[in-house]
Design a protein around this nucleic acid. Sequence first.
DNA 1: GTCCGCATGTAATACGTTACATGATTCC
DNA 2: GGAATCATGTAACGTATTACATGCGGAC
Lengths: 156, 156
Amino acid sequence: MTGYELTKAFDRSVNFVWHAVQGQIYPELSRLAAQGLIRQTSTGPRGAKRFETTEEGIAELRRWITTVEPTRGTRNETLLRMFFAYLVDPADAEVFLCREADEYRRQLAILERFAAGPRPKTPSERASGLTVDAGIRANKARIEWAEAAINEVRTW
Amino acid sequence: MTGYELTKAFDRSVNFVWHAVQGQIYPELSRLAAQGLIRQTSTGPRGAKRFETTEEGIAELRRWITTVEPTRGTRNETLLRMFFAYLVDPADAEVFLCREADEYRRQLAILERFAAGPRPKTPSERASGLTVDAGIRANKARIEWAEAAINEVRTW
DNA sequence: GTCCGCATGTAATACGTTACATGATTCC
DNA sequence: GGAATCATGTAACGTATTACATGCGGAC
C-alpha cells in the first residue's frame, strides 16, 4: 500500500484494532524501509510510493506474533472517568453513560455490517473475521455494562 | 498519596483501568502541583511527600469527566496479532490464543475476588465497583471469544 | 551491620499528536 | 479554471518507557 492508502485504512476498518494518524505513517514507512522490513515497489501518479513487505518483514511479523508477549497495560478513558464518577452529579454520570452506550451501539452496528458481508474465503479474511467477532462481543458486553451502570447510577 | 503509594497502586488494582510506571509518577506529581491541581500536605519518613487534591484539581477532574469526549482510538495488541494470524502456523495461533485465554481467566479471577468482597458502602466504592463490573464483563466476553477462536483456528 | 523495602528523582530515548506546508491529478 | 481529492513530508510539542542513581529506615 501507499502511505495515503494506509492513512485511509486506519481512518476506516483497521481503526477498531489499531489506530494511527497520518503524521505517523510516513516516518514509520521510512523506518521500516531502512530496516529492510518493507520495500518500495513502484512510484505512481503524484509521486505515490507503493510499498510491500519483504521476506524479512514477514519473518519479523511472525516472530512478533508468536514470541513477543502482548503488552497488557490498559488505558481505558471511559473506565477512568467511571472510577471518579462519584465526584459528579449522578445525572451527569447518567448522561455520560448514555453517550457511551450510543457509541458502543454505533461501533457494534459497523462491525455487524462487516460480519453480515460475504463469508470469508481467504486465510486473511478468516483472520480479520476473528477480530470482527472480538469487536462484536466486546461491544455487546460494553452495551450491557453501560445499561446496568445507568440503572445503578439512577439509585445514587 | 505519595508517589511510591501511587506506583504500587498502579502495579495492583488500578492497573486494569489505567496503567502508569514509576518513571512517570514523580514528574507528573510535580506538574500537577505546579498547576495547583494537587498540593503537598506533609513530609514523612525517608523524605516521603504526601499529596492531596485541591478544590481546583477536583473541579478540573469534574470538568474532564463531563465535558471532554473520551478518546476512542483503540490499540489492541492481541487483535493486531490475530489480524495477521493467517501468516503463522495454525498450531502457533492456537498456542497464542490459549495463552490469551489463560490471561483473561486470571484477570477475571482477580476481578471476581474484588466483587466478592464486602458490599460497597461509600460513593467511591460504588463507582469503582462499576469499573470492576466492566472488567468482569469484558473478560468473560474475551474468554468466550478466545474459546470460539481456538475452535476456528483448529479448522485452518 | 546487612538486607529489604520504602522513597524519590532524572537522563536518554522513543513514540504519538497536532498543525502546518506543499504540490499533482482528476473531475466538472 | 476551480474544487476536491490524492499524496507526501516534517517541525514542534507532549507523553511514555527504560534504565540508572541514590539514600533512608526498620528488622533481625
